[in-house]
């Protein structure tokens, strides 16, 4: 509680930090653009000055960042900092009021919702497997009804995805018959089956028993190594250190600091980042 207060106490410092952070990323992309000399190479995901509020409550106050293909961005931040909301803006599960989001150069606002979501997969904290369908049917539903695949082809592809997350043997189990970790792996297979260009993970392990977290993180690490572009909200610092290409600390709807994980862990620019990471590690050690 007191940490929270000290966090807000140096509010001026924060806004300055955000400004400089934004500038930094802007210059980064500028130089990247210059390097490729106007070639078609652009970030897979570009978020520009994203603003979002629920009624009077402002949740996102101008978020800007780029994410290249094959990058894994881990987002951390206290609850209520806007992490999940930001993810939901990317695939437009929630509408935003200001700024823009581009997927491969195309504004998501100009895209059809369903097309966008076909290209951007999502894995949820509360998993949300379709409760009336088996693991296999959870994966085939999108293939059949969204991509219009035939029954056999969908089945085959779905089995491949289940195999990828190590659950081919559980294909005919219903969600209630699976452990939390297995459910979340099916959730990942369901998202993968649509061949997304970008995968969003919204605290995928937060609802799981501690002993089940590992199997899910393992699948996610495999994906990261396989070159999947991922935007991951998680507080699993081990995963962030090993798999993330970049780490982003979000607080009160702003990016406080963003950089390679080693930098944020070992030499953060801002006290609040250090403080928050310190707390996270202490908690996970206590657990």
């Amino acid at each position: 509680m007191s940490d929270q207060h000290s966090g807000t106490a140096d509010g001026t410092d924060t806004s300055a930090a955000t400004a400089s952070g934004t500038e930094a990323s802007d210059t980064d992309t500028a130089s990247a653009d210059a390097a490729t000399a106007g070639a078609a190479s652009q970030p897979l995901l570009r978020v520009e000055d994203l603003q979002k509020s629920y009624g009077d409550e402002t949740v996102l106050r101008g978020i800007s960042f780029d994410l290249d293909k094959r990058d894994v961005e881990v987002i951390i931040g206290p609850s209520g900092s806007g992490k999940s909301t930001m993810l939901r803006c990317v695939n437009r599960l929630t509408e935003f009021q200001g700024g823009a989001i581009y997927l491969d150069g195309e504004s998501v606002m100009a895209m059809n919702d369903n097309d966008l979501r076909r290209r951007v997969g999502m894995v949820f904290q509360d998993i949300n497997l379709f409760a009336h369908l088996t693991a296999l049917q959870n994966v085939t539903l999108g293939l059949r009804k969204v991509r219009g695949m035939g029954k056999e082809a969908a089945r085959e592809k779905a089995m491949d995805q289940l195999d990828r997350v190590g659950l081919a043997s559980q294909a005919d189990s219903y969600p209630a018959e699976l452990s939390g970790g297995q459910k979340q792996r099916v959730g990942i297979a369901r998202a993968l089956a649509m061949d997304p260009e970008l995968l969003l993970f919204d605290e995928p392990t937060s609802a799981l028993d501690p002993e089940l977290v590992g199997e899910v993180l393992e699948v996610m690490r495999d994906l990261a190594e396989g070159g999947m572009t991922m935007l991951v909200v998680t507080h699993e610092m081990g995963f962030a250190r090993r798999a993330a290409s970049s780490l982003m600390f979000l607080d009160e709807g702003r990016i406080v600091e963003r950089g390679p994980p080693e930098q944020l862990f070992d030499d953060p620019e801002h006290d609040r980042t250090a403080e928050f990471l310190q707390r996270l590690t202490t908690i996970s050690e206590e657990v």
């Binding site: 695939n91 599960l93 919702d113 369903n114 097309d115 979501r117 076909r118 997969g121 999502m122 949820f124 509360d126 949300n128 497997l129 379709f130 409760a131 009336h132 539903l141 999108g142 009804k145 969204v146 369901r190 998202a191 649509m194």
Partner: peptide, 30 residues
């Protein structure tokens, strides 16, 4: 029926009405 079910259906690219038809109704009718 949990609201997350429809959200998940929307997240894989099903339209709202398809999500209701293939995910919410099969559960709700039971």
């Amino acid at each position: 029926v949990e609201s997350g079910q429809l959200t998940a259906a929307r997240a894989i690219g099903l339209s709202r009405i398809d999500g209701i038809r293939h995910v919410v109704l099969p559960q709700g009718l039971r």
